[in-house]
Design a protein around this nucleic acid. Sequence first.
DNA 1: ACATTATGTAAAATATATTTGACATAATGT
DNA 2: ACATTATGTCAAATATATTTTACATAATGT
Lengths: 66, 66
Amino acid sequence: MKNLRMKAARVSKDLSQDQLAKAIGVSRQTINAIEKGDYNPTINLCIAICKALDKTLDELFWEEQE
Amino acid sequence: MKNLRMKAARVSKDLSQDQLAKAIGVSRQTINAIEKGDYNPTINLCIAICKALDKTLDELFWEEQE
DNA sequence: ACATTATGTAAAATATATTTGACATAATGT
DNA sequence: ACATTATGTCAAATATATTTTACATAATGT
């Protein structure tokens, strides 16, 4: 299950995976893996991603909301 | 930083740390550590906790909301 | 056509989340 | 006073998140 909401939020901020990774302080592969799915990041990393993208946990990581 | 919101949600469901742990399929120590704070659980575990307690990620793990 | 940036992916190493087993104490009920 | 449940905490072991290095390909611009 890809995380398309996260990818959309990143792209709408005009950030590459690499730029987002550096802004947060993790590797590009980690960002790539989270967007790709089948990954289980830590909550602190999710929170850092949310802050960088101006979103909340529910908006990016809670289950499909319509 | 203790997670008092999670503890409150658990207590209001009349669940012990041990009962919640078993319901989710993790160890009691993990639940204890998360409530105690200074812990960095994975997002999947957070989601499992939220579901067990009928809460969302923002309600239990997003920063202090007033 | 060439160079550059962005993305997808893999294997080995490292950091850290989680478990297991154990012990101590507080709280509650009988 | 005793038994039982709930919680707090620790150390060693195990599982897994994350990094590092590396290579391949798609997309874009010149």
